[in-house]
């Protein structure tokens, strides 16, 4: 089997007296979706930021395997390399779509930006690409020139996804991607995401507190509490046969409709 795509080793991060991340390690393979589950304050968002390189770890390392096969420690990347990675091989879907989009730029411009950043200079082709992606995320083509300020929350999320996937990244980070959306909108978005993840063979690191989303989207799961990973394993195994006390509590607390 091939080497892992992403490998986190002994990650630690403190904010003053608070240990937000304590010795967290895991591996992620190509095409695998991993959920980091936990309640507020569990450290899951900190972990996501550490893996994504937005925060520097106090200890430990994150190693990523580039497209050419070389394994690089994130801390060894130059600012230019990291930013280039974020524009090509990685995607980041924020909970608040406004953070992941240029709200004043049309949908087409938002999707095309990465292509233009990579040197694409043909307006017609860029626009075609944008239209293709709008179709894939189920946004009407007539909306291509509208800015996301005119979009609903669900549409903004879908646009954010398109903007990130246009360069065919291999790894996508998602932070509560369905948080705050209406239930029916969530369902549609989750289905879309599931399909895209499968079609494109994306590796995903998903942070959520919603166990149903975790079950639907991911193969594997890490349960975090107080900065530590209290349990990990296959998503269905962790949810159906939880071992740790906290996991058992989480699973039993979920209300069924």
């Amino acid at each position: 089997m091939t080497a892992p795509l992403l490998s986190a080793q002994g990650l630690c991060k403190r904010f003053g007296a608070i240990a937000a991340c304590r010795d967290v390690s895991f591996e992620l393979n190509e095409g695998e979706a991993l959920t980091i589950v936990g309640e507020s304050g569990s450290g899951k968002t900190t972990l996501l930021n550490l893996i994504g390189g937005a925060l520097a770890a106090d200890a430990g390392e994150v190693v990523y395997r580039l497209r050419d096969g070389t394994a690089r420690a994130l801390s060894s990347l130059t600012e230019a390399e990291r930013r280039a990675l974020m524009r090509t091989d990685w995607g980041f879907v924020h909970q608040d779509a406004a953070r992941g989009l240029r709200m004043g730029v049309s949908a087409g411009g938002n999707i095309g930006e990465r292509l233009m950043a990579l040197g694409d200079r043909h307006y017609g082709r860029i626009r075609e690409n944008a239209l293709e992606w709008l179709a894939r995320v189920e946004i009407a083509a007539t909306r291509v020139d509208d800015p996301p300020t005119t979009y609903s929350g669900g549409m903004r999320q879908r646009l954010q996804i398109a903007r990130n996937l246009v360069t065919r990244p291999r790894l996508v980070f998602m932070d509560e991607p369905t948080g705050g959306l209406d239930v029916s909108v969530q369902a549609r978005l989750l289905d879309l995401m599931r399909g895209l993840i499968a079609d494109m063979g994306l590796a995903v690191v998903l942070v959520t507190h919603d166990l149903a989303v975790a079950r639907l989207l991911s193969h594997r799961m890490l349960v975090m509490k107080g900065g530590e990973v209290v349990e990990s394993g296959l998503t269905d195994r962790v949810l159906d046969d939880p071992q740790a006390p906290y996991t058992q509590l989480l699973v039993s607390s979920v209300l069924a409709a």
Binding site: R102, G108, G109, G112, E113, M116, A117, R121, R127
Partner: peptide, 12 residues
């Protein structure tokens, strides 16, 4: 890249 986004917006 963002400079061309501006020009793209113009054309759009």
């Amino acid at each position: 890249g963002v400079m061309h986004v501006k020009l793209y917006e113009d054309i759009a």
